[in-house]
Structures are given as C-alpha cells and as structure tokens.
Write a protein that binds this DNA or RNA. Sequence first.
DNA 1: AGAAACCCTGTAGCAACTAAAGAGTCAAGA
DNA 2: TCTTGACTCTTTAGTTGCTACAGGGTTTCT
Lengths: 160, 160
Amino acid sequence: MKIGELAKATGTQVETIRYYEREGLLPETSRTDGNYRIYGEAHAQRLSFIRHCRSLDMTLDEIRVLLRFKDAPTENCGEVNALLDEHIGHVAARIRELRSLERQLKGLRDLCQEAQDAAHCGILNELARQGSEGGSSAAGHVHGAHGRSVERKTMKDKRK
Amino acid sequence: MKIGELAKATGTQVETIRYYEREGLLPETSRTDGNYRIYGEAHAQRLSFIRHCRSLDMTLDEIRVLLRFKDAPTENCGEVNALLDEHIGHVAARIRELRSLERQLKGLRDLCQEAQDAAHCGILNELARQGSEGGSSAAGHVHGAHGRSVERKTMKDKRK
DNA sequence: AGAAACCCTGTAGCAACTAAAGAGTCAAGA
DNA sequence: TCTTGACTCTTTAGTTGCTACAGGGTTTCT
Ligand SMILES: [Zn+2]
Ligand SMILES: [Zn+2]
Ligand SMILES: [Zn+2]
Ligand SMILES: [Zn+2]
C-alpha cells in the first residue's frame, strides 16, 4: 500500500510517517517506479505499535528501546519491564506535580471572589509577591501542562 | 542593576531574561554607555510575576494577558478570573488524562510478571495489537508526560 | 597593563511533530 | 489525448520556552 493508505489504516498523518522513517523508527521502504513508498502488513503493525506507545506518552527514545526488543524476539525482556516501570514513574511524578499546581491555583483563585479593578485584584497582587518557589523541577520526563491539538490554529497572527 | 544581578535576584537565567524581552514580556530597558541593560525594582517585580506564573505552568500567552491587566490597574479584572479558571481546567484535564494513562500502563505492566524471551512478553505483544484508541486528544493546553531538566544533558550523542 | 568576569548580538538546538512550497506521478473523465 | 485532480516526493521552516554557543566588546580587579 501507499503512504496515504497506511496513514488511513493506522490513523496517523502522512508527514508523521515520513518523520518516523527519518528518525529510524520505521525502516526505509522499497519504492515504486514513480518513487512512491510501498508498505506491507509488517509496516502497519510496527506503526501501530509506535502509535500505541505514543498514546501512552512514551518518548521516541523509550519506543526505540521497545522496538529493539520487538526486533530481537529471543532476548530477555527484563529491560522492557524496567522501562515500563520507569515510565509509570514519569507519569506518576507528573500527576503529583500537577495536583500540587492545581491546589496552588485554586488557592490563588479564591483570592478574588468578584470582579473589581485590577489594582485590587487579589490574584494579580498575590502573583506579584516575590518568593514562593517550589514549582515543578526535578524527576522524570512528563512535562508541561498545555495540550496539543486545539487552539494551535489561532496562533498564526501572534507576533506583530 | 545589570542583567546578571537581576538574574540572581529573581532566580532566572540571564538568557531567559533577554528572551522575555524579545518576546515583549519585559520592556526594552535603557542602556549604559557600554550598551549594558539596566534594570530597576519595577523590572524585578515584573519578572517575579512572570516567573511565578510560569511556575504555575501558564503559557507565555496566558501571562501576557495577565500582564495587560497589571499594566491597566483601572480595568475590571473579570477576565483575570476567567483566565485562571480556564487554566485550572487545563491542569485538571491533564491530570485526568495522565490518570487514565497510569491505569492503562499499570494494566499493561501486569501482562509480564517475570522476564522471559521477548517473543512471549505480554507487554510487547499487547502493544503490537492494533486498535485501542482513546489516547489523549482534545481539550486544554497541558501537555506531554516528560519532564524538563534531567537527562537532557545525556542526549547530545543521541543520533549516530 | 593584563586577566577575569561580565555583557552584547545572533544563531542553532531540544521533542515530536505540522505545514507549506514547489515539483513530480498517476488514475480517471471529457 | 488531454487535462484535471488527487496523490506523492523532498526540503525547509514553524511550533513552545527556553538553553547554549560563538565571536565579539566592556568593566573591574589586581
Ligand atoms: Zn517515560
Ligand atoms: Zn480579580
Ligand atoms: Zn493554561
Ligand atoms: Zn516481558
């Protein structure tokens, strides 16, 4: 099948597939006379595997490790288990961070019950106070607090 | 004070301060004869405000909005409250996503109790199964599952 | 005076894509 | 047959919030 069909079959964007090839997660395929990539069932399975891992928020580096084991069926899978445990740790750590943020944010929110002039807004004034360290810092690899997908479109005219 | 002193006073890196200036979060300052930026107390406060917001995982765009209200003390702060509520929603949404991921990952982990050959590893086999959509997708702006800071250093020699 | 410590601008890199430019290929319809 | 349209190709740049150079200039200390 051609790249567009593979994309449809796996729910992946065409550019993402080419990106994975560049990154070495998918092998380079054979090509048609017209230089089109052609894929088989094995490619579809491998891509499904990758996307499944990504849906669990693993990094491409983590996925690379798992793929090495997929490609070496006689190896002992102990490292796979360890990697998964670590990744679960990454997720758990980020959840703890975000819960702490949520608490702080709710406390902050309570400082302004009803709208007034900005100069007396408890929220703005509290944010202006210095100190109060303790934000997210160490540990794993689960980051950010802001999603992909939405509202990305509207960002074009941001600058200027 | 000079940029290095401001950096020390606020616990911010020098490059970050210059970056905020480029991004319009901090105003351009006056300069010394030798073209050094000079800052006063007001700048330090503004920077503290920004860093405080960042420690709460707000985006720079969100912070820009809050700064507009800081700069207009007579405006009604209703939008501030709304922005905070939205951001709390972002964080809450991401927590829900990550909790779902955590459940899935733990279920996956249970599929391989003791190390064996990769071909029979329940984890690898389950990841290879297709379907099973339902990963993170819609909503807010709290993303990823992988932290900043650590293990970034080790990534230099990644390719090749 | 010389060296260390600071500052400047400009550019590139990180993760994991996404989008777009500019060109080529292929199948079907008029 | 020709032409439209859908598809594909490569290359390049943009996204977010910084961080790290490189290659200079300035200040300050000794
Ligand atoms: Zn992880
Ligand atoms: Zn308020
Ligand atoms: Zn937010
Ligand atoms: Zn196993």
